[in-house]
């Protein structure tokens, strides 16, 4: 697959640009976190497109951003479960 360039992305309508970026990101994320790939890809697509393009060019920065998203997700899930257990305790 040829690298995605800014001009290729800019040629697509805005609503399709996230889809195009997601299609590129998903397999890379799936290779690291198969069970969370859909969720993490969705989280990363919140970042603006120019930064996502840079991340696609730099495996290290993509890797660290994926791990950052996993950490945020884990904190969120722990706070959810602690809220649930607290609410069931009352």
């Amino acid at each position: 697959q040829e690298p995605l360039t800014a001009s290729m992305l800019a040629a697509a309508p805005p609503q399709e640009q996230k889809q195009i970026l997601g299609e590129r990101l998903y397999p890379l994320i799936h290779a690291m976190h198969p069970f969370l790939a859909g969720k993490i890809t969705g989280m990363l697509l919140e970042i603006d497109n120019s930064e996502l393009l840079l991340m696609l060019e730099s495996p290290e920065s993509l890797h660290s951003k994926i791990e950052e998203a996993v950490a945020v997700l884990q904190v969120h899930q722990m706070s959810e479960s602690s809220h649930k257990s607290a609410s069931t305790a009352f």
Binding site: Y26, F35, G38, T41, M43, E46, E51, S61, E68, V72
Partner: peptide, 26 residues
């Protein structure tokens, strides 16, 4: 500086590639 992942992004919709069919091992 790169954008950090915001806590709010946990509410972002999940993304699956077009034509994705979940395999039941997920």
């Amino acid at each position: 500086a790169p954008t950090s992942i915001s806590k709010l992004s946990v509410n972002a919709p999940e993304f699956y590639p077009s034509g994705y069919t979940p395999d039941f091992t997920d």
